[in-house]
């Protein structure tokens, strides 16, 4: 073997092996093996397919969209905001305001996309869990769905419910599904009641 080959052969083999191995690793996605990066909260996100139905399903959709909007307002990711809220003892005023605005925006978006259920379905479910006079509940139930749907546009009921919600209390109950339900359902019921009263006052 001549001197030139002796000098060049091993480095050439070594270089070929290094380039080959690194090339295969990179081509197979080696540079991208990193944790899922949170999406920009201000970008449109494909809707989550909720497994829940009724108020629970609607609440989930509203909360997910609302948190996204609040995160966008606060300039953080949805995940970062969720973790911050879960880990903080007390949410800041800015977070509470952003969340309430986010929920209002979410109601508007779902209405625009025609994804809100008729209010009669919400009213039935809210009545089941509400602590109200039996006769009043029976009276409301006696109303035909079409009357309720005409009298109570879902968007208005939900917007009012969002205004009624005690966002701080909800955030302190984030890890307790029952407590959350206890916060949301009375707020929806209160909104239904207030909306009905408003409509009656307008009629009178």
């Amino acid at each position: 073997m001549n001197a030139g080959v002796r000098i060049a052969a091993l480095p050439a083999v070594a270089l070929a092996l290094v380039v080959g191995v690194a090339g295969v690793q990179v081509a197979a996605g080696g540079g991208d093996f990193r944790p899922l990066a949170p999406a920009d909260a201000c970008d449109d996100r494909p809707g989550t397919t909720s497994r829940a139905e009724g108020i629970a399903g609607l609440t989930e959709q509203l909360v997910l969209r609302g948190v996204d909007d609040a995160a966008c307002t606060l300039g953080v990711s949805r995940e970062a905001l969720t973790l911050e809220l879960a880990q903080q003892d007390e949410p800041t005023d800015a977070q509470v305001d952003a969340l309430r605005d986010g929920l209002r925006t979410a109601v508007g978006e779902l209405a625009e996309e025609d994804l809100l259920p008729p209010s009669s379905s919400l009213v039935d479910e809210a009545l089941d869990g509400a602590d109200i006079n039996r006769f009043l509940a029976a009276g409301i139930r006696a109303l035909p769905d079409s009357v309720i749907d005409d009298a109570l546009p879902t968007e208005d009921v939900l917007t009012r419910a969002v205004d009624e919600l005690d966002v701080r209390a909800i955030l302190s109950d984030l890890d307790d599904a029952d407590a959350l339900r206890d916060e949301v359902e009375p707020a929806v019921m209160q909104a239904v009641r207030d909306e009905l009263l408003d409509r009656l006052r307008n009629l009178v």
Partner: peptide, 19 residues
């Protein structure tokens, strides 16, 4: 943690189970 939060939030599960 953020990646885990993202996957749990978007998981096709009942809200109670996610919580």
């Amino acid at each position: 943690t953020e990646a885990i939060a993202s996957l749990v939030i978007d998981a096709p599960l009942q809200p109670d189970d996610k919580i």
